[in-house]
Structures are given as structure tokens and as C-alpha cells.
Nucleic acid binder design. Sequence first.
DNA 1: AACTTTTTTGCGATTTTCGTAAAAAAGCTA
DNA 2: TAGCTTTTTTACGAAAATCGCAAAAAAGTT
Lengths: 156, 156
Amino acid sequence: MKKIDQIDRHILQILQSDGRTPYTEIAHQLGVSEGTIRSRIARLLQDGVFEFVIQTNPEKLGVHVQAIIGLTTKLGMQKQVAEQLCKLDEVRFIGAFSGKHDLIIRAWFYDNDELITFVNERLSQIEGIVAADVSLELKQYKDSFSFVRDDEVAIS
Amino acid sequence: MKKIDQIDRHILQILQSDGRTPYTEIAHQLGVSEGTIRSRIARLLQDGVFEFVIQTNPEKLGVHVQAIIGLTTKLGMQKQVAEQLCKLDEVRFIGAFSGKHDLIIRAWFYDNDELITFVNERLSQIEGIVAADVSLELKQYKDSFSFVRDDEVAIS
DNA sequence: AACTTTTTTGCGATTTTCGTAAAAAAGCTA
DNA sequence: TAGCTTTTTTACGAAAATCGCAAAAAAGTT
């Protein structure tokens, strides 16, 4: 995989604020040709550096309840539990962690009922989960998923 | 704000797997005109239902360390702490929660040194943080941020 | 049923993307 | 460093997508 340079970072920075910016526009901003932007984006996608996606606003879709759940798993069953969890649409994040909990997941629900049902019926049926520590999200202050720091892009 | 219907959900579902799908292509898949897709997307963006963004792969950008940190804040200072944290580029998620921790944040770093520096120098300088409980991410199984369940989109 | 409002469609003009070959730049070797 | 190879950028016509907007259709109201 080729090294990512300043031009690449600049492209990523522009796309993280609007993933649909035309290549011609990016080219104009960076002072290079459209073809350059095109081939670089193709390479970055090829190398799996980034993907074009959308970020939906949960509230606007009626998703009023989000939770972070710390899970304790039976020794040796962590991977298997994670794989089961991956299948669930309500679960948006799953990670293995050092610390109090073996797995930490983040999930979203239309309402409290759905959350309760999830914990009582869905989680309890997954073999290998020993304990679940639920934290209800009361307010979200920030949520981003693209990592190109402003100070890493030279101002041109 | 207008109600979101099946066509809107279908549009969102397509865009969540490729945020750069041409409107003509979406129109073709749904059997409506390009103009319909265009006006609906304009409305959804207008209403703040979703945004076009990119998702970067942390590892590919040299971000090898991610952590979830549970924070305990001094009573009445939670909002103020959250606002300070928002300014930090390393912090990708901040939420207020019920449960053991008042705030839970997720942050990313190039290496362990940066994480240590973050906890010791950055966090410690924020007025109102009483305790920080760090969990290191060992492996990520899933991470998505668009909520349109497959079963909510009628197969056409 | 008649009227109003909203949504969809159609289509030409404009803009963007795509394919590709030539030019330029960057690397490499002796 | 000159000469050669590989990679990247540029240029530009063809194809495709987006845009602007007016007419038609559909949905909602009284």
C-alpha cells in the first residue's frame, strides 16, 4: 500500500465534510487536475483507506434510545459472542476491550421497550454472555468517524 | 418536517452502502425518475435526516490505538466538561449517560504514548473531571452509523 | 366535484465523470 | 549524473449525471 501524502489527506478532509463534493471541485481547491483526484480516490478506495457512506440522524428516524452495554463473556467465547452480536441490526458498534468488560457494544432502539426486549430476549439467548452492564445515553455531544485532523493538512 | 416513507428509507439504505451512488442509478433501482430521487434527497438533507460523509479506516491512517473512557464529573459540571472535550480532535464520540459514568467518550491515537499523554496532560487539565476509567480497544468487530434496518425496506 | 397544494415527470442545458494516450515527474541503476 | 523504468499527472473528447424548470399527475381539502 502506497503511503498517504498531504494531497490525500486534503482530499479526505474535504470529503469528510461533504462526501459528495465533485472531483472537479476538489481539484480546483487543491490546484491539480480532476484526473489526479480521480486516480487518488480510486487508489484510496482500493486500499481500503476510506468509504463513501452517509450518517443518519437517529432522532429524525425515530431512534430515541441509544445505549452502551459492557459485556462480560465466558473465557474463550468472546469471538463467538461478537459474531452473534454482529448479526443484530440494533447493534452499531462492537469492540473487544481490555478493562472491566470484555466486549463493549453500542446499540440503538426506537424506544425503551425495544431496549428491554433486546437485553432480556436477544442478549440472554446468546451463549457465552455472563453479564451485561447497560448505560443509557442521555445526550450526545459529538460523534464522528473520520480521522483527519485539521492540523495535519497544510493550508495551501 | 415531512414523514419519512418507504422510498426515503430505500434511498437511505442504498446510500449507506455507497454514498456516491448516482441518482439515476437509485432512480432505476426504485423505478422512479431521477428528479424524484433528487428532490427527496434535497429534502432529507434539508431536514437534517442524513449527511454525505466518508468513513476512514483508522489503521490505514496510522491510528493504532482506540479507547473508550468512562468519566466521572463533578456535580453540575458535566456540560462544561463535554464542551471542552468537543474541541479535542482525538475525541470522536462524547455522550452523557446514566449509569456508572457521567460521560463516556471514545478517542483515537497514533500510539500508546499519545493515549498516555492525552490522559495525563489533556484530561487532567479539564476542570471538573473527577475520575477516568480507560478501556483499551483490542479489536473492532463492527462500526456503523447509519440506521436503516434491512427489514424496514420492502423488497421491490 | 372543484380547487389547492405537493410530488413526480420530462427534457434540454450544463456540469461531472470516464477512458485513454501523451507528458511530466519520480525512482533506480550503473 | 545520464539513461532507463515506473509511476503520476495532465489533457481532452465521449459518455453519463446533475440541474433548472415547466407541465402533468397525484394527494389533500372543503
